[in-house]
Design a binder for these strands. Sequence first.
DNA 1: TTCGTATTGTACTAATTGTATCATTGTAAT
DNA 2: ATTACAATGATACAATTAGTACAATACGAA
Lengths: 138, 138
Amino acid sequence: MTEKKLTLNLDFHSGLPIYTQIVNQIQSQLANGILKPGDQLPTVRALASELRVNFNTVARAYRILDEERIISTQQGRGTYITEIPPPEASEKLRRESLGELTQRFINEALRLGFSEREISQTVKDRLKACKEPSSQEN
Amino acid sequence: MTEKKLTLNLDFHSGLPIYTQIVNQIQSQLANGILKPGDQLPTVRALASELRVNFNTVARAYRILDEERIISTQQGRGTYITEIPPPEASEKLRRESLGELTQRFINEALRLGFSEREISQTVKDRLKACKEPSSQEN
DNA sequence: TTCGTATTGTACTAATTGTATCATTGTAAT
DNA sequence: ATTACAATGATACAATTAGTACAATACGAA
């Protein structure tokens, strides 16, 4: 279950850089549901070995995908598909997703013993701090 | 009584090292009275087993907490929450822990593309729903 | 008490993973 | 031919987690 094959077809004569092909195909597989949020991708070395390319080439592809927030690479841990809502997701799904995220946050905060008032105030403060990063106090 | 469950929620995709998550959550639970001075924490092996991580990862978290004088680890005995809770530092720690939890939530929501306004509104709605569980709509 | 053993944390090392930097190669423009 | 640049490869590094052996303590049995 932890292992997923991730079959990529590279064309070494296409003129397209290897790393671009990797990027494109991972994006495609994510868009088609072959890859799902949370999935762990092969390590740069494992995928490189399978594709018969240098692992830096895979790392480059991963870095691009990471910058696009499509995957999350973590040194010493591995790389994972991020939990981004598909672009075609409806606003309702979007709301539900935020709702679930929020509910988890609130439940956790309540479980830790914080009052609703404290939670509300802290969220307000932190959101304001996001908008105005001038104040650096913690 | 010697046994306390110590429920920790690890997110293996969060980018935060496991040991950091353990440290943060234990700090939070202490700040909020879920853990109290004198409480015995699970052994490194027991907690590691439950969290499905290596016991050295737990040991690392314990060592950090020990250096912060939050817990006292005693070889051959176990690990305990420090008896002397800095009275004024406790409230400070409490605020910080809610702050960190909130910041993580906000960052995640922003990363998912939600606006500050959406986040603020959803938190408000969910908190209200907590207080008045009469309304069932989602 | 004294000893044996289980339990507990510690220390050191190894393995796995991604990162950073520079070298090499190949191709196209000049 | 030379130069420039992009793509790829090689090497060394850093971060995280896992593996193994060990030391300190507790506790019961002899």
